[in-house]
């Protein structure tokens, strides 16, 4: 069975969340909650909770970025100093830990920030081409629910959106 997309626009979060709640409870055949995407002008964790757990892996990127940044920083600085083993150091250590910690700390942050941002791009799938059902009003003041479902389930979903006072319902072939 082929699947298609449908976008419903709502005036506010209450109506959109009521629609999602009912969709969740409906157990419609040919429809899966993981195929629901909420589009909104602001972040809204409460309504995102309704959609179920959608893990974010940015923190893992942060952890590895910061760790590797610190390690690489320390190794780079240490090896840069160790190049001059032949130089008289006057009893001082070749790799002095306290001053090297400053640069290690800076590179810890540098690595952490850069790789966190990389994680964001991967997690948010950016850059991406805009979906054909994207509507500019979502960036203004309306809430969009984008559904991907089997064609047989679409009429029931459309009825449900209409019941919840969707301002506009757009299918892949137009309205």
């Amino acid at each position: 069975m082929s699947k298609s997309h449908m976008l419903a626009l709502f005036n506010d979060f209450d109506e959109a969340s009521a629609a999602i709640r009912e969709l969740k409870a409906s157990n419609l055949e040919g429809f899966d909650l993981k195929d629901v995407t909420l589009k909104s002008p602001i972040e809204h964790p409460e309504i995102e909770e309704l959609l179920g757990k959608r893990p974010v892996y940015v923190q893992l990127f942060t952890f590895f970025g910061a760790t590797f940044g610190a390690l690489l920083g320390f190794l780079f600085i240490s090896s840069a100093q160790a190049t001059f083993l032949m130089q008289p150091k006057g009893g001082k250590p070749i790799i002095p830990i306290p001053p090297d910690m400053v640069l290690t700390y800076e590179l810890f942050i540098l690595g952490g920030v850069y790789i966190t941002v990389l994680g964001f791009f991967i997690g948010a799938k950016l850059p991406m081409k805009r979906h054909k059902l994207y509507n500019a009003r979502v960036s203004e003041d309306q809430i969009g629910i984008l559904i991907k479902a089997e064609d047989t389930a679409m009429p029931a979903i459309k009825d449900l959106f209409t019941k919840h006072r969707a301002l506009e319902i757009i299918g892949e072939g137009g309205k």
């Binding site: 995407t37 002008p41 805009r130």
Partner: peptide, 12 residues
């Protein structure tokens, strides 16, 4: 970058 304000994008 093609930002669409999806829940996945906001969460990240």
């Amino acid at each position: 970058l093609g930002w669409m304000g999806t829940d996945r994008q906001w969460a990240n």
